[in-house]
Simulated assay, not measured.
Amino acid sequence: MKMTLKSRLMRGLAVTVPGLVLAGALSGCATPPPKTDKADYQAYKQLNDPLEPTNRVFFKVNNVLDTYVMKPVAEGYVHVTTQGIRNHVGDFTSNIGEPARMLNFMASGDPTDAGTSLVRFLLNSTIGIGGIFDPAAALGYPKIDTDFGLTLASWGVPAGPYLYLPVFGPSGARDVWNLPVEWVATPMAAAPASTSLTDFGYAETGIDLINTRAEYLQPIDQINATALDPYATFRSLYRQSRASQLQQIKQRDKKTWPDWYHHPAQ
């Protein structure tokens, strides 16, 4: 039986992602300072980056790929498009991810945000012509970000050690599971397999990567030019961003748990 894009991607991620974590754990761990050196040991624990040697190797690999492939393509893309076009592309690719956000909000007990995601998907997929436009935001339903890593966080799963994955970039032992789970929740995964759907999947993934890279051309250039240690800077920014996303979700929506679920008092 011919393997579809969905099954190839899912099988590849299911094997590759845990494999990368295990390979890093076995091949390149940072040596912790002795516990008697309290200051250094506390700093090591706070960084929570025991795979730093391996992470830095992947960081360098990604920099090479970015320098010679992604950045030039993104610069060319910016040269031949306008900001308005790039905004519409971002709206379109974001709309494809709206069902996944809705399911994650439902799983984490955030009913209001789940409802917002559902309304956004219905409005933008119809009135917004497949998500090219964002009428939902104008009607009072702004985009709200979440993912499976944040859902796991709401269940009390700790962030775990920092990971820097080849191609995918910054992540963590908890957030790494976004990759296979988010794909399962896309509309393409639920649709019957076909050649046209396969081609669409490749095209959508490619344009999303290019459009996202174009959005961060200046910030990334600035960090690479000014930071004493770009790897550490990106690590810090990633963690700050994830903490901010989780805090915003906690502040915005009221949890609703089923009667049979004995959750901790909040």
Rank of each mutant, 00 (worst) to 15 (best):
residue 1 M to Q: 09
residue 6 K to Y: 15
residue 9 L to E: 10
residue 11 R to Q: 14
residue 16 T to G: 14
residue 23 A to G: 15
residue 33 P to G: 08
residue 37 D to A: 13
residue 38 K to V: 13
residue 42 Q to M: 05
residue 45 K to L: 15
residue 46 Q to G: 00
residue 48 N to T: 03
residue 48 N to W: 01
residue 49 D to I: 04
residue 50 P to I: 09
residue 51 L to I: 00
residue 52 E to I: 04
residue 52 E to T: 05
residue 52 E to A: 15
residue 52 E to Y: 04
residue 53 P to S: 02
residue 53 P to T: 01
residue 60 K to G: 07
residue 61 V to G: 09
residue 62 N to V: 07
residue 67 T to W: 07
residue 68 Y to G: 08
residue 68 Y to M: 07
residue 68 Y to C: 05
residue 69 V to I: 15
residue 83 Q to L: 10
residue 84 G to E: 07
residue 86 R to K: 11
residue 87 N to L: 14
residue 89 V to R: 10
residue 92 F to I: 01
residue 92 F to R: 09
residue 93 T to H: 05
residue 101 R to S: 14
residue 102 M to F: 13
residue 104 N to C: 14
residue 106 M to R: 03
residue 113 D to I: 05
residue 113 D to Q: 15
residue 114 A to Y: 08
residue 116 T to S: 10
residue 117 S to M: 07
residue 118 L to C: 12
residue 120 R to V: 07
residue 121 F to C: 04
residue 122 L to W: 07
residue 132 I to M: 12
residue 133 F to I: 03
residue 135 P to F: 00
residue 137 A to G: 14
residue 139 L to E: 02
residue 140 G to R: 11
residue 154 S to A: 15
residue 159 A to N: 14
residue 163 L to A: 04
residue 164 Y to L: 03
residue 188 M to Q: 09
residue 196 S to L: 12
residue 201 G to N: 08
residue 201 G to E: 11
residue 202 Y to H: 01
residue 204 E to T: 14
residue 207 I to E: 00
residue 211 N to P: 00
residue 211 N to R: 08
residue 222 Q to W: 15
residue 222 Q to C: 07
residue 229 D to L: 09
residue 231 Y to R: 00
residue 236 S to G: 01
residue 244 S to W: 07
residue 248 Q to R: 09
residue 249 I to V: 11
residue 250 K to R: 15
residue 253 D to L: 05
residue 254 K to P: 01
residue 256 T to M: 09
residue 256 T to S: 09
residue 260 W to T: 07
residue 261 Y to V: 13
residue 262 H to F: 12
residue 266 Q to V: 02
